[in-house]
Design a protein around this nucleic acid. Structure first.
Lengths: 336, 336
DNA sequence: GTGAAAGCGCTAACAC
DNA sequence: GTGTTAGCGCTTTCAC
């Protein structure tokens, strides 16, 4: 019975050292990849460590390394499948590169600034923000503390802060071209009230491309909740169905709400009456009911670029801010 | 120009102490909630800290507290919207309770055991596992190191390990009753090849309830990829459509794949020809095309229960393993 | 390759 | 309430 919880005394490197008849430094070195220890001592140390159930105390290691291997990820909601994939990819990539992702979600109680500030106290080796951009002041603080900071899908050009964005301009134009090539002659774009930077760029690139083709873009403005926003747009769009319009939504979640309600609530035929193009290529876009033409962004490439940026800046904190643009591609399905 | 990055020397409590003309302990106390410091000193300290740009070094604090406020979350994929919601809710809850969630995803490179083991080196104050259960050995290690461990939706009864499960038995029976009350007289259950504990319980409870009503349950076995698994089942189910069967899928993702393909690939009418019931109540279940009847589980309750369990065990590590059951409820929509 | 000694920045027990 | 002292467990020069 007391076999299972023998002792609660934490075993330290010193204990191991004594048992192995070496110095504490020898123990330390044995657990430090690339340190100079003879294979013989290392084995002695491992054996003793094993016997004692020793585990390196990373906290102590961090204290004199003056930095942890934690990377903070500040995100908002994950209700959108694209966001979820983004977090997933980022977390995996970070771990693969030897970091430990700390996931901090924004909600009523916490602002970006607060979260970033606590992260600074934790001596993290980097921060990725996929929600709002933090105030300039705290960014300077990051720089001062040599904490690399990367922003995903943000416009803000801040000193010492890197960014990675999708090629929203190209994406918006692809969407437009898809609709044009499908023979549409009337165009609608759905704009959410609280639209992020990326969405805005996609929308204006879309309108621009449509204009170049000699057409006009009508905008339908809706609320911020993604699927519901699309559903909300469905009524207006259904009223225009006679003109057989092509509709662009700057995210799949919105596009799916629109398409779903168009088909199942308003009896509109897709793509017969209305063509729809989305953005992100979430898994649901390929579902049978939707068969949504969309613009694909690779979350893995986003993740890779982000982590690379972080690592670069860790080595050279003085680097000028860099912006990495991720390629997008059109996924042609049946809805356009 | 050099105004923006003045110095890179880290400022410590000692620096603040000197500037404020107090001892380093006074500084420490000023930043420790509930410590005994006069308001006057605290203000002096804050002022000096402000001036110097001082931030408490949590790593140092952790070192003598002998524990961090990090809680490890070991998860697998987040491709399933229910999983994503689960992570989201858990992360938020942890932060609200003063913890810092570290998100470790399982993939080819990392096993549960490895991840849990590293977490132990980090002196975390708890671990939540929503993927596979870890080997008993490492769990004992957790117990020995006084690290609370909670398993979500797992069968495994391990010493010193708490669990929180949904009421899968009740849920499975609810699904059965929904179909029975809708007047179905033929019953199918979709079983994925690699089905977790929860899914198995749901399925057997379903079959049990159907049997009690004097009917039989036919099982359709499919692959493990959720939506695709449902799609795969659609062919078999479509072939039985003549009998107007009621079909139960132990997760919405599978149910949606099934329903989507039934309607849009096989021209089967829902609920006219076939009735479908899912599980989880993911957002997509309420989408117009699906209108899926399902069993709801509250991720927030899961999160709350999990964190409570962790906190309890932190106070009393010797506690016998506890199992918390989360209530479920039927969400009646049009697909049954 | 190995050991001794000096920190890393903070908290806490103890006097005052 | 405040200062003094002694750690927390590790890494890292620096001699040897």
């Amino acid at each position: 019975m007391n076999k299972i919880r023998p002792d609660t005394t934490p075993v330290t490197a010193l204990d191991v050292a004594r048992l192995a008849n070496v110095s504490r430094s020898a123990v330390s070195r044995s657990f430090t990849p690339g340190a100079s220890v003879s294979e013989k001592t290392r084995q002695k140390v491992y054996k003793a460590a094993q016997e004692l159930g020793y585990r390196v105390n990373m906290v102590a290691r961090w204290l004199n390394k003056q930095r942890t291997d934690i990377v903070g990820m500040i995100a908002s909601r994950m209700d959108n499948p694209y966001r979820a994939k983004q977090i997933d990819a980022l977390a995996k990539r970070l771990v693969r590169e030897g970091f430990r992702p700390m996931l901090l979600m924004i909600d009523e109680d916490n602002s970006v600034e607060e979260l970033l500030s606590t992260l600074l106290n934790y001596r993290v080796s980097g921060v990725v923000i996929t929600s709002d951009a933090p105030p300039v002041e705290i960014c300077n603080e990051c720089a001062r503390m040599r904490v690399p900071l990367a922003l995903v899908d943000r416009a803000d050009d801040l000193p010492f802060v890197d960014r990675v964005n999708g090629n929203d301009r190209a994406g918006g134009r692809m969407a437009a071209r898809a609709l044009l090539e499908a023979g549409r002659e009337s165009f609608v774009a759905v704009r959410q009230e609280t639209l992020g930077y990326s969405g805005q760029v996609r929308l204006s690139a879309f309108a621009e491309c449509i204009a170049e083709a000699g057409h006009e873009t009508r905008f339908v403005t809706v609320g911020e909740n993604e699927y519901e926003a699309g559903a909300e747009a469905a009524a207006s769009v259904a009223a225009m169905a006679g003109g057989r319009p092509g509709v662009f939504c700057p995210s799949d979640s919105v596009a799916l709400g629109l398409l779903d309600h168009l088909k199942h609530r308003h009896g509109v035929d897709i793509p017969g009456d209305v063509g729809v193009v989305g953005y992100d290529d979430v898994p649901q876009a390929s579902w049978a009911f939707a068969d949504l033409t969309t613009v694909r962004q690779s979350v893995d490439e986003f993740a890779r670029a982000t982590v690379d940026l972080l690592k670069d800046r860790a080595q050279n904190p003085e680097l000028a801010p860099r912006l990495r643009i991720i390629d997008v591609s059109l996924v042609q399905r049946g809805s356009a």
